[in-house]
Design a protein around this nucleic acid. Structure first.
Length: 634
RNA sequence: GGCCCUGUAGCUCAGUGGAUAGAGCACUAGCCUCCGGAGCUAGGUGUCGCACGUUCGAAUCGUGCCAGGGUCACCA
C-alpha cells in the first residue's frame, strides 16, 4: 500500500515517517549638532564597551553589495559580478558595516591584497549611503551613513508594503511540491509533522518568490493492505452493516481495530490472506461493493486529515492518491519494454542502473504486481505532462533516499528531459523523549504518537502559560491555539532539515529562548507599540533619526530579509528563515531594552514607529511563510 | 561489508573558503516610578571527531580513518 511514510513493518504506510550608557551618550550629544555627531558619541562609547557579536550578517545586504561592487569595479579591472563573493561582514560592528576582501583583485593584479585594500580605501564611492571606508589588512571596511541608510531601507519597505521580502525570481515558473502524503485508514502520527511542515514552508517560500506552486498530497490509498481491510470489514465489521463509516464517532479508530483484528485472525486462519487478495482484486476490477467501501475509507480519512491540516494552516492544490496512477501503470511498463530497459531477475522485472553504484530498481514483482517505484514513475510522468514544472520537490524522509535515487536513475535511463528538475528534499527523523533517551516517534510501549494529541497538548500548555502571564486576555482560545501551533511548527523548522529533531513538548513550549512563542511574543510587542502610538508618521522624514547602533543593526537585518527568503528557497531549507527570524527578534529585544520607541522627541518617535512597522511586516511575513499565524495579542 | 546522513561549549544547535568560532538551554548575579520582564545585561568553558592533503588562508573543500544513525529488490 502506501508510499512515503516509513516504518512499513509496523504501520503499513507512505512518504513521511519537526546600553543605557550609550543612550545617555546619545542624549548628551543630541543637545548639540548633527546626527553624525550623535552617532559618533554612541560609537565612541561603544568601542569602549565589549560589544556583542553582530547577529546581522548571517544573510547578506545583497542590494548594497551589488551597488558597492559596481562602484569598486569602476576602480579596478575586475567585473562587478566577480567581486560579489568578496563581500562580508566585519567581525565587530565598530570595524565597519560591510567588508570587502581584496583577495580576488590582488590575485588578478598579482599584488599584495593589503596594498590593494589600502589603495582602494583612498578612492571615493558613489552611493549616498557610503559614509567612508578604511583599510584593515587585506580588507576594505565600508561605513554606512546611518541616516541615509535608514531612509533607503525604509523607503524600500514602504514601496513594497506588506509584500516586503518577496521576490520575482520565480515569475513564470512552476514548481511541484510533493509533501505530507500520509496513508489513508490511519491517523496522522507525530512523524508526519516533518514532511507536512517542511513542505508547507517550501510551498510558501516559492510562492513568495513568484513561482506558481502546486502543492501535492500524494496519498497512500492503494495496495494489497486494502484487501486486508476490506476482508476485515466483511468479516468483523458488524456495526458497519447498520450505518456507514462516516456516521461512526471515531471511524479511523474503527478501521485500525479492523486491521489489527485481521492480523490476529490471520495467524490462525491462512484463508484470510487469500480472501484479502480476492478483495483487492475486486477493488482493482471496480467491484461496486469494494469500491464503495474503499471510498468510504478514503473520505473518512480525508476528513480526519483535514481537521489537522486546518489547525496547521496547510492546504494542497492537488490531492491525488496512488490509486489515481493505477491505470497509468501499463503505459509505463510498455515504455520500459519498448526501450528494452526491463530485465528479468529472480522472476521479477527490474531496471539496472549501470554507471551508478545503485542496485537495480524493482519494477514488477514476480506475481506481476507493480510497486511503489512503478507508481512514482507514473506520477512523475503525469506531473511533467500536466505542469511542465521547473522544479519538482519530494519532501520525504531520508530513509527513502535510495528509493528516490533509483527512481531518478530509471527516469534518466528513460531519457526523460525533466529528470534534473526532480529533487528529493530529505530530512531527519523526529524523536521523542522516553525514559531519558530519544526514541523514534513512539511511546515506551511502542505505540505511535498521534499528531492530534501532540497539538492538543501543545495548545493546553500554551494556554496555561498565557493565563499565568496575561489573565486578562479575552482571546485566550485563539491565542493558545496559535501559540501552541507556533511552538510545534517552529520546533520542527528551527534546525537544518537533515538533522533529527528531538521533540520534547515541555521544552518546546517552555517559551523561553529560541521558540515559536518567543517569536510570537516579539510580534505581539510590535503590535502593542503600534497600538499605543497616536502620532502620524510622515513619509518625508522617515529614518533620518535612526542612528543608534541598535537601530542600524535592525535596519541591516531588515534589508537582509529578501536574501534570507531567496536562500531558504534555493536551498530548500526553511531553517535559514527560522534562524533569520530569531536574529531579528534578538536584535529587536536588544534595541527595545535600550531605547524607548515612543520617545519624547516626536520626530524620533515617528521614525522608530516606522522602524517597528517595518519589523512587524518582516516578522509577520516570515512567520506566515513558515506556516505560523502571527498573533496580535497574547 | 557498500552507499547516505550526522559529529562544533555540560545539553540542543547556528556558522556563505576569510579577520579573535557564537546563540539558546542549564547555572550565578543584576535590571520593572519606563512602550507587555515570555524580555534585557553581565559572568566561561571548545584537540570544530582524528589524520593527511588542496589553498596566501579550512569548522567549511578533497582523501583516508573513527563513532552514532539510516539504508541495501519482490513493503511503502
Amino acid at each position: 500500500m502506501a508510499p512515503r511514510s516509513g516504518e512499513a513493518a509496523v504501520v503499513v504506510c507512505r512518504r513521511t515517517l519537526l546600553a543605557r550608557a550609550a543612550l545617555r551618550a546619545w542624549r548628551i550629544a543630541a543637545g548639540r549638532g548633527t546626527f553624525r555627531a550623535r552617532f559618533a558619541a554612541c560609537l565612541s562609547h561603544r568601542s569602549r564597551r565589549r560589544t556583542k557579536r553582530a547577529v546581522a550578517g548571517r544573510t547578506s545586504l545583497k542590494k548594497y553589495q551589488l551597488a558597492l561592487a559596481a562602484a569598486i569595479a569602476e576602480h579596478v579591472g575586475v567585473a562587478a559580478q566577480d567581486l560579489l563573493p568578496s563581500f562580508g561582514v566585519p567581525p565587530k560592528a565598530e570595524q565597519g558595516d560591510i567588508s570587502f576582501g581584496a583577495f580576488a583583485i590582488a590575485r588578478a593584479a598579482k599584488k599584495d591584497p593589503r596594498a590593494v585594500a589600502a589603495e582602494l580605501a583612498q578612492k571615493s564611492f558613489a552611493p549616498r549611503w557610503v559614509e567612508r571606508c578604511t583599510a584593515a589588512g587585506p580588507y576594505v571596511n565600508f561605513f554606512l551613513d546611518r541616516g541615509e541608510f535608514a531612509q533607503d531601507v525604509l523607503r524600500d519597505v514602504a514601496a513594497a508594503g506588506s509584500d516586503f521580502g518577496k521576490g520575482r525570481n520565480g515569475a513564470g515558473r512552476t514548481i511541484v511540491v510533493d509533501y505530507s502524503s500520509p496513508n489513508i485508514a490511519k491517523q496522522l502520527a507525530v512523524h508526519h509533522l516533518r514532511s507536512t511542515m517542511i513542505g508547507n514552508a517550501l510551498v510558501h517560500l516559492h510562492r513568495a518568490l513568484g513561482y506558481q506552486v502546486v502543492g501535492v498530497n500524494h496519498l497512500g490509498d492503494w495496495g494489497t493492505s486494502f484487501g486486508k481491510l476490506l476482508t476485515a470489514w466483511a468479516r468483523f465489521g458488524g456495526s458497519l452493516e447498520q450505518k456507514p463509516l462516516a456516521e461512526h464517532p471515531q471511524p479511523i479508530e474503527l478501521l485500525n481495530d479492523l486491521y489489527v483484528r485481521f492480523h490476529e485472525k490471520a495467524k490462525a486462519d491462512s484463508t484470510l490472506e487469500d480472501e484479502a487478495r480476492r478483495w483487492f482484486h475486486r477493488l482493482e476490477q471496480g467491484d461496486t461493493v469494494a469500491r464503495d467501501r474503499w471510498k468510504q475509507i478514503r473520505d473518512a480519512s480525508w476528513q480526519h486529515f483535514e481537521r489537522i491540516y486546518r489547525r496547521l494552516g496547510v492546504s494542497f492544490e492537488e490531492v491525488i492518491g496512488e490509486s489515481f496512477f493505477e491505470d497509468r501503470m501499463p503505459a509505463v511498463i510498455a515504455e520500459l519494454e519498448r526501450l528494452e530497459l526491463l530485465e528479468e531477475s529472480d522472476e521479477a522485472q527490474v531496471v539496472a542502473l549501470p554507471g551508478t553504484e545503485l542496485p537495480p530498481a524493482l519494477i514488477r514483482k514476480k506475481d506481476g504486481a507493480t510497486l511503489y517505484a512503478t507508481r512514482d514513475l507514473a506520477a512523475a510522468e503525469y506531473r511533467w505532462e500536466r505542469w511542465h514544472f521547473d522544479k519538482c520537490l519530494y519532501v520525504v524522509d531520508a530513509g527513502q533516499a535510495l528509493h528516490f535515487r533509483q527512481l531518478f536513475g530509471v527516469l534518466r535511463r528513460m531519457g526523460k528531459p525533466y529528470v534534473d528538475r526532480l529533487q528529493h528534499v530529505d530530512f531527519g527523523i523526529l524523536r521523542l523523549p522516553v525514559d531519558g533517551s530519544w526514541v523514534r516517534g513512539k511511546t515506551r510501549e511502542g505505540q505511535v504518537v498521534l499528531l492530534e494529541h501532540v497539538l492538543d497538548r501543545a495548545r493546553d500548555l500554551a494556554r496555561e502559560k498565557i493565563l499565568e502571564k496575561n489573565p486578562e486576555l479575552k482571546e485566550i482560545d485563539e491565542a493558545a491555539e496559535a501559540v501552541g501551533m507556533a511552538a510545534v511548527i517552529f520546533a520542527d523548522l528551527k534546525a537544518r532539515r537533515t538533522r533529527d529533531v528531538n521533540f520534547d513538548l515541555e521544552q518546546i513550549t517552555s517559551f523561553e529562548g529560541e521558540t515559536g512563542a518567543y517569536l510570537q511574543y516579539t510580534h505581539v510587542r510590535f503590535c502593542g507599540i503600534l497600538r499605543n502610538y497616536s502620532g502620524a508618521t510622515s513619509a518625508a522624514s522617515q529614518g533620518r533619526h535612526l542612528a543608534t547602533p541598535e537601530e542600524t543593526a535592525l535596519l541591516k537585518e531588515i534589508a537582509s530579509f529578501p536574501a534570507a527568503i531567496e536562500r531558504a528557497a534555493v536551498e530548500a531549507e526553511p531553517s535559514i528563515l527560522s534562524q533569520y527570524l530569531l536574529g531579528v527578534a534578538s536584535l529587536f529585544n536588544n534595541f527595545y531594552a535600550a531605547h524607548r520607541v515612543l520617545a519624547e522627541d516626536p520626530a524620533v518617535a515617528a521614525d522608530r514607529v516606522t522602524l517597528v512597522r517595518a519589523l512587524r511586516t518582516v516578522v509577520a511575513n516570515g512567520l506566515a511563510i513558515l506556516g505560523i499565524r502571527p498573533l496580535e495579542r497574547m
